[in-house]
Amino acid sequence: MAAGPYSDTVMDHFTNPRNMGEIEDANGVGEVGNPSCGDVMKLYLKVNNDGVIENSTFKTFGCGAAIASSSMTTEMLKGAKVEDALKLTNQAIVDALGGLPPAKIHCSVMAEEAVEAALKDYYTKQGKDASIVDNMKAEIKKDAE
């Protein structure tokens, strides 16, 4: 049993955050905030010409769960194809972290939203309309149901 309210995986990602920092030549950056508690997460993506996320990093202002969710999200994004990145749900992040306390689930939601925001930025920079992300997300949801 974990020694506190967080799982061992959350504690590991909190104390040893993966991929913390910025990517200078990022081609997708998303910043989202959580109005309920003021957390802010900034997600950086470097997508290569084959549409694969080569690198992903984060900067986060927030609690332990927010930092761990950010760290885990970057790990899960690396090596993924852009179109698959949107399939990353907050529940998948929670599961990968070995669970979060109910009051902290919003931190994983923030991470999912950061991915969307970063991809909108990416597609905009590719000369496409950002709404493509909303459409893709809607498709994914429909498939899931």
């Binding site: 309210p5 309920s36 508690c37 003021g38 957390d39 927030g62 609690c63 769960a65 306390p101 109910p102 009051a103 902290k104 689930i105 919003h106």
Partner: peptide, 12 residues
């Protein structure tokens, strides 16, 4: 902190 004051709460 708001974020740790009631971490065992059922919702945010």
């Amino acid at each position: 902190s708001a974020c740790s004051s009631n971490i065992l709460a059922e919702d945010e």
